[in-house]
Nucleic acid binder design. Structure first.
Lengths: 150, 150
DNA sequence: CTAATATCAGGACAACTGATATAT
DNA sequence: CATATATCAGTTTTCCTGATATTA
C-alpha cells in the first residue's frame, strides 16, 4: 500500500463522511417533523418496533440497544406508558427489573397505521425505491452498523 | 403485482425502516459525542466541509442544503464565526446577502486534524470498511438521498 | 407591493449528568 | 461491599416558531 493510494483512500473516506453527515442531519430532522404532534419520536418508534420484533425487554437493555442512557430511555418509555402503548411488569426472577411489553392497544394501532401506510419512512422507502435499491440499502445498513459498534 | 407480493414488500420496507431508525439514532448520538468538548456539532462540521468543497455560500443557501431553518443555521454559524473559523463579507451585487467563507485558521485546523486523523467518522470508515464496502456505502448514500428529497 | 435575506427573541424537546433508592 | 436497575431533578443543546428590518 503506497503513499498515493493511502492519500486517495483518505479522500474517499472524507467525501463519504461529508455526505453521511449531511444525510444523517436531514433524515434526523425529517423523522422528527414527520413524528410531530400526536405521534412519537424516532427513538420511541424504534422502541415500539423493537419490542414488537424481539419481545419484552427492560429499560436498560433497550437503552443499550439504542446506545443511549437509561434515564433518557426511561423518559421516552414513560410517555409511551402514559399513552397506554407499553406496560411494565416486575420480573419475578430479578426484582430489580421491569419487563416492558406492548399493550393490545399498541398492537392494534400498529396494524391500523400499517394498513393506512401512515409510517413516513417505510412508506417512502416503498414509494421511491425499487426492490433492487432496497436490497442495496439493506446491504449498506449492515455495513453501517459496524461503524457504531462498541 | 398481486396481494401477497405487496404484503411482503411492505414487510421488507418496514424492516428496513426499523433498522434505519435505530442506526440513525445511534449515528446521531455517536457523532455528537465525538464532537463533544472543544469541537463542533455535526451540523457545524457539515457546514465547514461544505464551504471547503463548494466555496463561499450564504446562510440561506447553507440552510437549504442541510434542510434546516435559516435561523438555526445562523446560530450554528455564529459560533463558527466567534471561533474565528468562518468569516462573512457582504455581497456587492446583492446587499441582502453575506457570503461566508473559511478563514485561513480554519483551513489550517482542517489540515492538522486530517494529518492527525482526528475525524471520527472518516477515520472509522477507513479503519473498518474495505474499499468494496465503501463503494457499496457510496451507492447507498445516493439512494438514501432520494428519501429526503423535496 | 411582494419576495428573499438576515437576525433578534423566546420556546420546545430530546438526551445529557448527577444523585438516590433498591435489589443482586 | 460491589454491581445492576430504575427513577427523580436539573441542565444543555439543537432546532423550532414568530416578529422585524433591509434590500431586490
Amino acid at each position: 500500500m503506497n503513499y498515493r493510494s493511502n492519500q486517495s483512500q483518505a479522500r474517499r473516506a472524507s467525501a463519504l463522511a461529508l455526505e453521511m453527515r449531511t444525510l444523517i442531519g436531514r433524515l434526523k430532522r425529517k423523522l422528527r417533523d414527520q413524528a410531530g404532534g400526536e405521534d412519537f419520536t424516532s427513538s420511541q418508534v424504534a422502541v415500539v418496533l423493537r419490542l414488537e420484533n424481539e419481545g419484552p425487554a427492560t429499560v436498560s437493555s433497550l437503552a443499550r440497544a439504542e446506545a443511549m442512557r437509561p434515564q433518557s430511555m426511561s423518559a421516552a418509555i414513560a410517555q409511551l406508558e402514559a399513552a397506554g402503548l407499553v406496560s411494565g411488569a416486575p420480573d419475578p426472577n430479578d426484582r430489580r427489573q421491569t419487563l416492558l411489553s406492548l399493550t393490545p392497544k399498541c398492537r392494534a394501532l400498529l396494524e391500523k397505521r400499517r394498513a393506512a401506510k401512515q409510517d413516513w419512512l417505510s412508506g417512502t422507502i416503498q414509494a421511491r425505491l425499487s426492490a433492487a435499491e432496497q436490497a442495496k440499502l439493506s446491504e449498506a445498513l449492515e455495513i453501517l452498523a459496524r461503524l457504531v459498534e462498541d
